[in-house]
């Protein structure tokens, strides 16, 4: 039985074998299978179970890679944020998607960096853009925006033009200007 489709793409739609393998790996955990438009095997995971689900999928179901960690903001709906993990198995050539819903008041999910070190940047980006914190991440700093930035640009309430996008630059500029004057006056005093 070939593990790829006729077009040569990984067998994401033919998820019978994937579903069985994942179900066996997640025996006893509270996960719910949902339909995905693209046919990828998708599960909704409770936040408390996410660490264990990721652990078991790696160790028992041979998902060796995490290809995507990102967030979705469903603003009017509650719970507001959805954290998406997509895993890829090199051995079986199939994928699985995990969805975890968290509220905006308590937007914290466990990290995957101890399982896949490559998850670090994706989690940092997700933190940067949505403000979702990844508990256990050793270096959860902003990745794209300046580190002093106060907002999370991919949140729905964030305006298109940003909130004072030049604020940090202007503060820096004023600081330099003051330094310049201090230096000048010190030189004059000498």
């Amino acid at each position: 039985m070939s593990s790829t489709t006729d077009s040569g793409r990984p067998a994401t739609s033919k998820s019978g074998a994937t579903a069985a393998r994942v179900a066996a790996a997640l025996e006893g955990l509270n996960v719910r299978t949902v339909d995905a438009r693209d046919g990828m095997h998708s599960l909704v995971v409770e936040r408390g179970d996410l660490a264990e689900v990721l652990n078991r999928l790696q160790s028992r179901a041979q998902f060796e890679q995490v290809t995507l960690i990102t967030g979705v903001d469903h603003l009017p709906a509650q719970p507001r944020f959805e954290v998406v993990h997509q895993l890829w198995s090199l051995v079986h050539r199939d994928r699985v998607r995990l969805k975890t819903f968290v509220t905006s008041e308590d937007a914290v999910v466990p990290t995957a960096t101890h399982l896949w070190p490559g998850a670090a940047f994706m989690e940092r980006e997700c933190f940067d853009m949505f403000g979702i914190r990844f508990e256990g991440h050793e270096n959860l700093r902003r990745l794209l925006m300046p580190e002093d930035y106060e907002h999370h640009p991919l949140r729905k309430e964030f305006p298109h033009h940003g909130i004072e996008p030049d604020k940090l630059y202007r503060a820096w500029e004023r600081e330099r200007r003051d330094e310049f004057f201090e230096r000048r006056s010190a030189e004059e005093a000498r």
Binding site: M145, H161, G162, P165
Partner: peptide, 13 residues
């Protein structure tokens, strides 16, 4: 890039 991240013309600075 009509965006929060991009300087809207370097004549801003």
């Amino acid at each position: 890039y009509d965006s929060y991240a991009v300087v809207q013309g370097v004549d801003s600075i």
